[in-house]
Design a protein around this nucleic acid. Structure first.
Lengths: 109, 109
DNA sequence: CGCATAGGCAACCAGAGGGTTGCGCGTATG
DNA sequence: CATACGCGCAACCCTCTGGTTGCCTATGCG
């Protein structure tokens, strides 16, 4: 169970960079895009964008496919859903802990 | 809207380290704990744990309170909920993009 | 009082991470 | 065919980060 939580750490780390977060957002709203298309609108180099995409790929969040001379990147939503579930789990545990604390305090009175 | 997304990046970055994820998990299930209590069970030094706690604090995920000679740390669940909502938002956008793609493909046929 | 315990502060180190530049190669396009 | 475009690879740089050790203060306890 603890291992299940720490297993999602790479996904969170991947989302932890503002540029990567932007890439994820844009891939979400605009659909699959090429590297240069993704570079447009960012203040960084195409190479830097490629590095970020590789990080997302390593976290299982994105995949690439070559199409002619372009490399088109798309998202995989499943890791995102899993990460969201983990946050849900944590939030639920937190609520439970809060309830226990509340019960303890009332018992003290 | 994009700024709203990138604003949650620090929270994700904070959750991106396995040790920090463990700390969050333990603070969730066990309630508020002191630094040495949190250090027990980790392979790293108390100083390292303190640094991690400071990172969580900077992300708004945890707060500390001095109690005698102890420093007790507790979670703040609100940033977690916000981060989860952001993942929800992304997932929904992804679903919408998928629907649009599907419609486009069917239209092509 | 004297000692153990809890924890902060500062310095230091190795490694990872984000970014850039330069170059080369394959694919479109006129 | 020649040129422009899209992209990958490699080298390099600087900064941030995760971790440690050493030392110091303060609180709790016998």
């Amino acid at each position: 169970m603890a291992s299940r939580l720490t297993a999602s750490a790479p996904v969170f780390a991947a989302l932890g960079d503002p540029h990567r977060m932007m890439l994820v957002s844009r891939l979400c709203t605009k659909g699959p895009l090429s590297v240069t298309a993704l570079t447009k609108g960012t203040p960084i180099t195409r190479q830097a964008v490629t590095k970020h995409l590789r990080v997302l790929e390593a976290a299982g969040l994105a995949r690439s496919e070559k199409s002619g001379r372009e490399t088109v990147w798309a998202l995989d939503e499943r890791p995102l859903a899993k990460a969201r579930d983990h946050l849900d789990l944590i939030a639920r545990q937190w609520d439970a802990a809060l309830d226990r604390l509340r019960a303890f305090v009332e018992e003290e009175d």
